[in-house]
Design a protein around this nucleic acid. Structure first.
Lengths: 221, 221
DNA sequence: AAAGTTATATACATTAGTGTCAGTAAGGCC
DNA sequence: GGCCTTACTGACACTAATGTATATAACTTT
């Protein structure tokens, strides 16, 4: 068999990263593409071009496209968990809810996590949690953490257990939804969007706090 | 040139639908696949198999895969708009918010619209609104309708204009988010999910109403 | 400095999915 | 009944994306 490699032009200079850094750069590029384009924008060749490598290199590092996606999942799970847990541990101020919503929202938006989570939700339920990662459980766990934290809050009334659960659910769901749809719903012009979004979050947090402190009134006339 | 068609087995019997019905059946199949699997589950050949036709037939009716997706967008926009507008027109009961949230939520879930909207949000912003459809505008328009409706409500205080806007935003965003993530966040076992979800919506609606009727208190100590 | 390791490259194989083409048959209309 | 329109089909062309094989060059180790 003949030797297949027959370099024609200049043998483009190589940059050699450590495996760890290479993986990081690749995952960053994937996440960026996922944030900007849709899930269908994850093409090995395009990712490779973004990073400045050839696409087989990605396969070398992650085994397959699927492996790449699983690695992305794992990293996102770690990031979000670490973030929220950090807030929960040191959160002792009376405005903890505000801060928590703010922090989670930031993480979701800046890192494009909301889109990733939405992507999880869209993928069929039968997706294989191959390495015990199981992304959806992250959302579940985080919400449990928040619930536990909120339940311990001294000033709260919230006699019904379910009320706390609902509040957490609303917080998570609203934060998530706003990260995805906020820009569509906002009547404000572009430059003010960010400030408006912050006000919206504060308003939501206050509403939640009132809902938790005020006594229940099931038959609102 | 030789004649290309050389039928081998039995020339499978054809069922001939009207163009309208064919389009409907195809779109139904697409929507079902989109509800069950993710966005990547839209394969012409699979859709065709679901309907029981050959995949070129889909292209015949919609021009291209892209045309198919645009048609799906258009139909969903119509459905949701019609639904919400209907509620808004006859909504005169004091529990209109509850009903509205309930109705929109139902539409989103049953029809798999939440997933479709999520898909819109994930697609890159530069998606061509080729036939003047522009899906995101639906969300915007509906929220404006709701805002107008809510603003006219007699019992409301809501001095600040932005408060109404925020309430609508929260309603839409929460409904949307819950349709996607609700199952993950719910601590209840499977059979009670639906009832719990209804309670959650009612709770949310009541919270919103309180937020709109109660006077603002920007410096909550 | 030589040898080993592995990150990376080029070229190719494979598959899958969209769209085209030319022909077939089902129903409406005269 | 014959004609015309068009919904529908099978076979194929084309493209794009993943994955494989093999070679090379950049670090590490001894």
């Amino acid at each position: 068999m003949k030797t297949p490699t027959a370099p024609s032009g200049a043998p483009s200079p190589r940059r050699r990263r450590s495996a760890e850094i290479a993986r990081k750069e690749i995952l960053d590029a994937v996440q960026k593409r996922l944030s900007e384009g849709g899930p269908e924008a994850i093409r090995l060749q395009e990712i490779a071009r973004d990073v400045g490598i050839a696409h087989p290199t990605i396969i070398h590092h992650f085994g397959s496209r699927d492996g790449l996606i699983r690695a992305l999942d794992a990293r996102a799970v770690e990031a979000l968990t670490r973030d929220v847990v950090a807030v929960l541990k040191r959160g002792e101020t009376p405005t903890a809810e505000v801060e928590l919503i703010e922090r989670v929202a930031e993480t979701m938006e800046e890192q494009g996590l909301a889109r990733l989570i939405a992507w999880w939700a869209l993928r069929e339920p039968g997706a294989d949690p191959t390495q015990g990662i199981d992304p959806p459980s992250l959302v579940e766990n985080v919400s449990k953490l928040i619930a536990a934290r909120v339940a311990d809050e001294p000033g709260l009334v919230a006699r019904e257990h379910e009320t706390v659960s609902f509040a957490v659910r609303l917080a998570v769901v609203a934060t998530f939804g706003d990260a995805l749809l906020g820009d569509l719903l906002s009547p404000a012009p572009q430059p003010e969007r960010e400030a408006e979004r912050r006000r919206f979050r504060a308003w939501t947090a206050r509403l939640l706090r009132e809902g938790l402190t005020a006594p229940e009134d099931p038959s609102a006339s």
